[in-house]
Write a protein that binds this DNA or RNA. Structure first.
Lengths: 197, 197, 197, 197
DNA sequence: CTCTAAGCGAGACGGTACGTCCAGTCTTCTT
DNA sequence: AAGAAGACTGGACGTACCGTCTCGCTTAGAG
């Protein structure tokens, strides 16, 4: 009943993932079909259904395969500069139509399927967020961030607005915008120097 | 060729929107079909396709019909308190499975279809964001917000993290979380009192 | 409820019949629709349904309008020659794609709808058959046809084979074929000259 | 693209043909739909469209399946008697509402679709006509039929009138009528005994 | 070093919904 | 009151994919 992973044909697996990404780029997610993936990959439909639950799972796998497991963030000592760099990179990603399309695709699938959502979160989202968190922890130890700041929230404070604006097309996504967010967030977490200057 | 809105049957229109919302609540968005809406509304499919581009457009219309055109925000003079109230209300909305499901539905459709996205933005999102913006403007005039703060960004700083966490299921959505976001944002926009403490 | 023929718009009537014939020639019977007739005639659909039962009735009316009420047959005294002429004319009609198509159309409608069939029979078929019958009666009086021959059957003996071959595409329809049928039929009805040659 | 007949499911094929005949008997040809056939047969619509061009093709196949490939005609030595028997049988067939309806159905489809017409001709009509032709050939060899008679025409002379009268409802179809036709045709083909009476 | 059970390409299958087309009815406004 | 216009319910159309189910055909590993 359950397939034997040992016997799995690696060549087919790769052909399927490649075909899925190609078709995603060409036709967009809603027009993507398992049948088309199978045809493009030169593979029987059953071979897809044997190893994945549907097109969403295939796409997720394909994307996760493309992403480096661990993402490292630069630490120049200048928190603001480092964050600007990260957010500008994110803006650039969203500006790239290809990457943008795939991210939208993943998001759709994520919305409709809880299990897939969990996988996407753990394999794609978390590593990225976590890298930023690590950088913030370093900043906190360096006294550049208030010790009581909830760093998970700070991370979401950085990415949430970008994601929101991009997903809902609520305005242009520019480097200036990214910088503005960073400035606001830095202001929010900088220890108050007020009491006695 | 293009239908004549004058001749439109208002009764059918309402029946369709009502049926769409009912079915959405009962079966969820992916299982929602134009055929089912037509059947439930006692309407020919063509009548739906004559006036809408598909189920997404119907749902959007149905939801937009339910939303008050203008949303007013309380102004108690206490910005932090007012914002907490708004964000807590948003958290509550996201916690309600019914509302949550419809918002997810809209979001999916929005992602796949640019035109629909524009409509959703203008008719559903913007009014809500704008209400908060108005409150922030009042706060700025009252000297509670730095005069140079880009208020649109601040609004997104409030909602972005919530939306991000909810959509990607990146953690629990609680009142505490909402309060934490508000605290961070208020800290970000409060005029620096540094000069002489 | 029942429409008042007095008030009927003669112009519309004619436009409808003309449009029906045009479309029949252009697109063929199965592709012919009431909607198209109405559009072509610049007429509301209701105006068609008010006066006819459907596209079949319209077509029948259109064709019956075209046909001379009474058809006369030549009588040269030579029965064989006269019949040959009639059957050759019929062959020519069947060879004309346009006439052939309309006859096929009528036949289809006739098959499906008994009432229409009756009308077609009385207004289109009978007059034609009757003309031949009259000629045969004359021949009988002239002693060229056996007095005991059932003339209705003889008429059908003439047209039945042609019709059969044409409708079922059971072979080529040529003048030779027509002549052959005539010869057989004449042989069948010629009084036996046996007694003394 | 084109389906592979090897893989064809014989069970489905039979279920479809059976369902088609059932529904034809129950509802008549015009009310017959591919959808209903599929439902009754417990089959997907695509399975019908994969193997047939439409309901007409299905019905034709169903009927052709029912017909014995080769039809033999009795040969008692008495041509007139044998032909009477055949034509009376045909009259009986036309009198049976069920058989009559299916024949009308086939005819309609035949009229509209040349290819179908060709099939109907070859698989349904020709075998029957040919059987009569064979009998006539025997009669010719026995000297009961003029040697110069075009037998194909004679066959059509027998069936044409019946078909004509039935299809166009141009009069009652009785055994007497059939006998009358046979008498005429026999008269037409009997070698003239005149020469020396 | 065969044999056999698995995965495989292929694609037919029962289904469901699609978006379109037309039938025939109903409604509104015009002539 | 009839007509032009065209929106309405209804229902079949033929298509596209879904996910499952055979087919033979490799192909690997247990005997």
């Amino acid at each position: 009943m359950t397939p034997q992973p040992t016997r799995r044909n690696e060549q087919s697996r790769r052909a399927i993932l490649a075909a899925a990404l190609e078709l995603l780029a060409e036709t967009g997610y809603p027009a993507l079909t398992v049948e088309a993936i199978a045809a493009r990959a030169g593979v029987g439909k059953q071979t897809i259904y044997r190893w994945w639950r549907g097109k969403g799972a295939v796409i997720l796998d394909a994307l996760a395969d493309d992403v480096p497991e661990v993402v490292a963030l630069p630490d120049t000592g200048d928190l603001r500069a480092d964050l600007r760099q990260v957010l500008r990179a994110t803006v650039a990603e969203f500006a790239d139509p290809r990457l943008s399309a795939t991210t939208r695709a993943i998001t759709i699938e994520t919305l409709a399927d809880e299990e897939l959502g969990a996988q996407a979160r753990d394999r794609l989202l978390r590593p990225q967020l976590n890298a930023v968190r690590v950088r913030l922890e370093a900043a906190r130890e360096a006294g550049q961030v208030r010790p009581d700041a909830a760093l998970d929230q700070v991370v979401e404070l950085l990415f949430g607005p970008l994601y929101h604006r991009w997903l809902l097309r609520n305005g242009p996504l520019t480097d200036d915008y990214a910088d503005g967010i960073v400035d606001l967030v830095v202001a929010a977490v900088t220890p108050s120097t007020s009491i006695r200057g």
